[in-house]
Design a protein around this nucleic acid. Structure first.
Lengths: 133, 133
DNA sequence: CTATGTGCAAACTATTTGCCGTCTG
DNA sequence: CAGACGGCAAATAGTTTGCACATAG
């Protein structure tokens, strides 16, 4: 039952600093690209392993907003996200969540753990692209 | 600009009937398995192509609730979903969405198209499995 | 010291696509 | 009978993993 001992390796520290230092919501590949500037020999596998580990530890979060690539967020304070339906980019929204209603839970035999508001939209860049047509 | 002409092939019809006939939210692979009972020679590629096409036409919907496999839903009436965090299974919830607040949109330059409530939970089967430990 | 972590490459999973023969409208 | 479609297999994209060596504590 003893929690596994984790070491703060150079790779792990830099991955963490990188994700925490971003205002964006990078994919594993984007993190890889940035971290490689400081550690040219790091491997993509290491990035994946560490993003996963840091997520398990609750130090960063993995966004569950589908798409083909997963995105990560260094900001673990409670907030919601809007996702661009065109390019998948994500923006933050901070607001009080509407109260969950007991009526919701009554409809399902699932045990509800948490809920959040998911928004879909179009980011400024993609809006521009659309106007140009 | 002319919309492409789509044909109702046997494959497309059976895929559609299958998805519409289910109360579940099948993955492409599950649809493939079911359809193959009626059309043993159908290919997985065809299933993917048709699920995509039917989704574009708005006849079925593709669920955006992350995970590794995408799920489809023959029910296109407005409703929300709970996803099991253990096995990815999905259940339906029908309720009035809380009104979007103007304050939300003011925080982002994204143009908001739609929003929905996403719930996470544990399905009855997984609850059982957990009790057995 | 020693178990955890890394780099590398291969494996895997889900999905997409090119090609060419088939079939719908 | 033309163009949309399907079967097949190969290609792709994203992520995971086995292994042997490196290194944090």
């Amino acid at each position: 039952m003893a929690a596994k001992q984790h070491r703060m390796t150079r790779q792990r520290r830099i991955i963490l600093e990188t994700v925490k230092g971003l205002k964006t919501h990078p994919t594993a590949d984007e993190v890889f690209g940035l971290v490689r500037k400081k550690l040219p020999r790091i491997s993509l596998g290491t990035v994946y392993r560490n993003l996963e580990l840091l997520t398990e530890q609750g130090i960063i979060q993995k966004l569950d907003t589908a798409g083909q690539q997963k995105r990560f967020d260094g900001d673990i304070s409670p907030h919601s996200h809007v996702k661009c339906v065109k390019c998948g980019k994500i923006d933050d929204l901070y607001f009080e969540l509407p109260k969950p209603s007991a009526a919701w839970a009554g409809q399902t035999r699932f045990k509800i753990l948490e809920y959040k508001v998911e928004l879909l939209g179009i980011c400024p860049d993609c809006q521009k692209k659309m106007e140009q047509n």
